[in-house]
Nucleic acid binder design. Structure first.
Lengths: 249, 249
DNA sequence: TTCTGGATAGAGGTCTGGCCACTATAGTGC
DNA sequence: GCACTATAGTGGCCAGACCTCTATCCAGAA
């Protein structure tokens, strides 16, 4: 017999189902030929003919891209490249639909309060120094004008992540990581609210101090207070936004 | 001309394309019948027949739900309810590393104590009845001889899962689900330990009573005590096992 | 000229019915 | 007891047909 003729040896065509390959081919053309939002794609029949596949397969691929907000299909007209804003709105509505804000913040409290307590107890000095560095970075970024709120949000998340890392429970750390992602994608930063950044700094400092002093109870209390304040700020921001919409409408 | 015949005036029929209507029908069934991740849907042919539509239309609807991450399609097996993205991310990051027992149980305490408190506060009666049913199932299985410890472990996990479901935080529920799986795969049940099953039953009863009475503090305390007792039992079991190995080796 | 209405071309929407490929499982044979 | 082999049920893919919708053009009416 011949040598090992496993799949890995030669796989000329892309892998996966045909529909998936059509998907990526459409995406490739989209990026390669630099089609912009609003541009029309070839008709389903043309696509099927030029890709040498059946129309149902093309339709399934288009459907899935439509569900992701990358394409828009208009009956009687054709298939078009979607507006990126529509794509973003779709993603946000999906993530926000899945987890309401109150659930996210409740979860944050569940994770961060014990994390602070344990971090204070363990006194893992290298990890605590990392927390301190994260605090310094945040403070430094806070004093720069104009403020880069995207960067501030990242640094804020990093500060809290350092704390769970100092808590020494990898499960807790992973959970916090996922939660951070959800919060970042589904929520604008609250640090842009007037005066919030300064108060947030004080609350962070209080947590940090308790950690360094090894006062577990105080660390837990400070973390809890911080989460609740951020939640309040987020709620206020949302209330203001909806009020603005009411006025403008 | 007639009066203002805008689109908003009358639109009696179900709106949207057929595929879109199939989509929402599938989603409706998903939520209404409370299907959980991993559950199988009827086959494409069955769905098409019962909805009185063609299979291609069903396939397109399924494709789009798949693209949104709500369904998973497996060739030769069927269509299944997907895990929420957050849960999937958690599982992927958590199953990578092996975790020490203490981490697992610490995490369990972090999740289950607030879950019990919230469940007692919310008083979501249907969900609390589900907790009670889970308790009854567990009790019933406990009285059968010989004991089926695999089944007991499943029912035990189900009991705790019902509690987080009654707590009304989906993120908490998803985290607990992942944690349950980790515990089940990585740890033999402690219920086989002499007398442990009976004591576990008492602890469960104490949690259940507090839930039904709406006593959040007591529910939290009972949950905490239970987790700590299970942890102790697990540690003892491991100590005995290693001692036996020492003797035999 | 301006407007209306019908005809038309080409797009997506849907269906029928068939065949192939994959997966699990119940038997079958060793 | 174990490996192997049907087999049934699943999704994957196809061809070809017909329907509905949209935009456009153009002839005829106002």
């Amino acid at each position: 017999m011949a040598v090992d003729d496993t799949v890995t040896t030669w796989q000329p065509l892309g892998q996966g189902t045909l529909t998936d390959r059509i998907r990526s081919e459409i995406l490739r053309v989209l990026t390669t030929r630099g089609l912009s939002p609003g541009d029309r794609l070839p008709s389903e029949r043309e696509l099927a003919a030029s890709l040498r596949v059946s129309r149902p397969s093309v339709r399934e691929a288009v459907r899935s891209l439509q569900a992701e907000g990358r394409l828009v299909v208009r009956h009687g007209q054709g298939v078009f490249v979607a507006e990126p804003t529509a794509q973003r709105a779709l993603r946000e509505s999906m993530t926000r639909l899945d987890h309401s804000l109150s659930e996210l913040f409740a979860m944050r409290e569940v994770l961060e309060v014990p994390a602070a307590r344990w971090a204070a107890q363990r006194q893992d000095l290298p990890k605590l120094e990392a927390v301190q560095r994260a605090f310094s970075d945040l403070e430094e970024a806070l004093q720069q004008e104009p403020r880069d709120y995207q960067r501030l949000q990242d640094l804020d998340a990093a500060f809290h992540l350092r704390i769970v890392q100092a808590a020494g429970n990898r499960l807790l750390e992973q959970s916090q990581g996922v939660l951070n992602d959800l919060l970042q994608t589904g929520l604008q930063t609250t640090l842009a609210i007037e005066g919030r950044a300064e108060r947030s700094r004080e609350e962070h400092l209080r947590i940090l101090t308790a950690l360094l002093e090894g006062d577990a109870a105080a660390a837990g209390r400070a973390a809890q207070a911080h989460v609740r304040n951020v939640r309040r700020a987020a709620n206020r921001r949302i209330a203001e936004a909806s009020a603005r919409i009411d006025n403008e409408g």
